[in-house]
Design a protein around this nucleic acid. Structure first.
Lengths: 340, 340
DNA sequence: AGATTGGGTGTTAGCGCTAACAGCGATGAA
DNA sequence: TTCATCGCTGTTAGCGCTAACACCCAATCT
């Protein structure tokens, strides 16, 4: 072997030497600078793949001050909602030529979110998306590093950042109205956990419709989004069958739990009780009975949030904060029926 | 405002000036170098938070050649399995002080995976995890950049990289044996799509047990992991009721589809037909009936893969390739019963 | 006493790249 | 002819950090 067989990956200067140009010309070729002779360009290109050269984006980022990396802070990405949102974010970011660096929190609190944002800032991300469905998490956005472009997803409404979210209140209105339209006297609610903004929005829409229609507003049962908590709520509701004829459940997984509890207790859905869920997870269509629910387009939320964020980054200045709302969609299936 | 109120974030030299030391001393403080006087250290620390200084990891990475970032290439992270695996990866990586940069592929093929790996390499990741459940994807690992530490998850067995996966064959054996033990003459199978290694492993284990027991091996129905494809398979199976008394379904979502089809066709589970799923998604326990299934510990797979990868990275040399297998677990619930 | 250690600190070089500017030959205008 | 212009290329500086080494001043040893 010759003396030049070292394992160190080639750098721009190596390419330049081989192509007989300066490293700057190589840089120009790589960055599609117009003022390069076609013949020079091809010579450089040839040298590049002869050496298997890959440009070092770290060095590039150091001088340009742009890493073309976006940070995402999320909570429990094994859940369908966050997972789909993050997926949408990732796709949109990559289409725009950005990398995505993810921090997935175990527990969500202001300090945790702050730390995560801090790490990402050190790492040099050009902007941050915070999937902040909880009040405490959303508040962490108030102390972002100065000048850091950011956008909140499913987040706090009055904050100092742009927010993209599905209209939870409207979704809850759709669900509740549908049940009232079927002739039910009132609608019960199994809500999500207290601190969650989505849970609050769904309670608000539900209560609003009932109140507007002059119906009694039953106390909401509280779950934690899990099928098990829905199952427990279902057991309670089953004991009140007759009084309860319609339930709006704050997500599909809890609705599945209710379905299971009702099956065990011999309560027929939708004959004795109607159920509307929320989210439209891929499984809902195949529940027994298939679940009437409110679809959230998580992918769209992810994509829109990247639109907003990139506009901020690429304008280079602090743009006015936007509030983007993605409409939910009512999906009629077999878990609801007219009141007897 | 004074003349020094510029928006440029503070750098190490600014901290040094304020603390009355050299920038190198600041660096030493930040890197916990032992040879710094306690008094100097506190003076530097004070200057750091007085200025709100954050170190620039991009510059650090340029000189150290380590970004402390890991790349993850995955496919459809909205599915429970990949999402959980990636979550496990992310947690383990962060616990070890690494960032995670994700590329989530829409379609999975060798070229796509190769591109993704290329981007990640340019970006300067210290190592790569490829969640490569498909043959074609797994093969992309054969042309990794030289010297890039990597690990495959749920991947190809004979490759030139370490692999961490759940023992699919064993899981399928458990499922099939369970059904045979219940007295069923044979077991039908609804498999995953052809190119998937997990689908192949599950077919293999199923076939192996049937063959060993001298039972007929029915032709497998093929699904695409979705509840809908399971539903379609269920319709076909329902038409053969009597002949078919036991089915092993390659994942829980398809099993849900079967359940739905059987409900529609008036086929009773488990009285007329027994079903075993695979994965143990959080919903399975609340299906009607609750699904007997094989649990995969995706989180463990993610964590183990990071162990393997970090060992490679931190040793600094090419370690022998490992093959780590995480055992599956049988979960007995209500969808299986003894043959009549 | 002088030599030797070693903890604490500063100085210098350089990671691989882009920005800014300088240079140079060919072209066109005066 | 002379000077400005323009397309293409090279040279230089520097992004913010760490590594390597030099240095100084105690403390310790011979």
């Amino acid at each position: 072997m010759g003396p030049n067989v070292d394992r160190r990956p080639p750098v721009m200067a190596d390419v330049a030497r081989l192509a007989g140009v300066s490293h700057q010309t190589v840089s120009r070729v790589l960055n599609d600078h117009p003022n390069v002779r076609a013949e020079t360009r091809t010579r450089v290109m040839r040298a590049i793949d002869q050496l298997g050269y890959r440009r070092n984006l770290v060095a590039r980022a150091l001088v340009t001050k742009h890493s073309r990396t976006l940070g995402v802070v999320s909570f429990d990405t094994t859940l369908y909602g966050p997972a789909s949102t993050v997926y949408g974010i990732e796709q949109a970011a990559r289409d725009a030529g950005y990398f995505v660096s993810i921090v997935s929190l175990r527990t969500i609190d202001r300090a945790g979110v702050n730390d995560a944002i801090g790490y990402l800032a050190e790492q040099g991300v050009d902007g941050i998306v915070v999937v902040a469905p909880q009040r405490s998490a959303a508040r962490a956005l108030d102390d972002l590093p100065a000048g850091m472009p950011a956008v909140a997803v499913e987040g706090w409404h009055q904050g100092e950042v742009s927010v993209v979210s599905v209209d939870q209140v409207e979704g809850a209105r759709m669900a509740t109205s549908h049940l009232l339209d079927l002739g039910h006297e009132t609608v019960w609610h199994v809500s999500g956990p207290a601190d969650w903004l989505e849970a609050e929005g769904r309670i608000e829409g539900w209560r609003e419709v009932l109140t507007a229609a002059g119906r009694p507003v039953p106390g909401a049962l509280t779950g934690d989004w899990s099928p098990r908590s829905g199952y427990q709520a279902g057991k309670q509701l089953a004991a009140m069958i007759g009084d309860v004829t319609a339930v709006f459940v704050a997500n599909d997984q809890m609705a599945l739990g209710l379905l299971r509890a009702f099956t065990e207790e011999g309560v027929k859905v939708p004959e004795q009780i109607s159920i509307v869920g929320f989210d439209d997870i891929p499984e809902s269509e195949f529940f027994s009975p298939p679940l009437t629910t409110i679809r959230q387009d998580f992918g769209a939320v992810g994509r829109r949030s990247i639109d907003v964020l990139l506009r901020q980054i690429e304008s280079g200045e602090a743009l006015p904060h936007e509030r983007l709302v993605v409409p939910p969609r009512f999906v009629l299936r077999g878990s609801t029926a007219a009141a007897r």
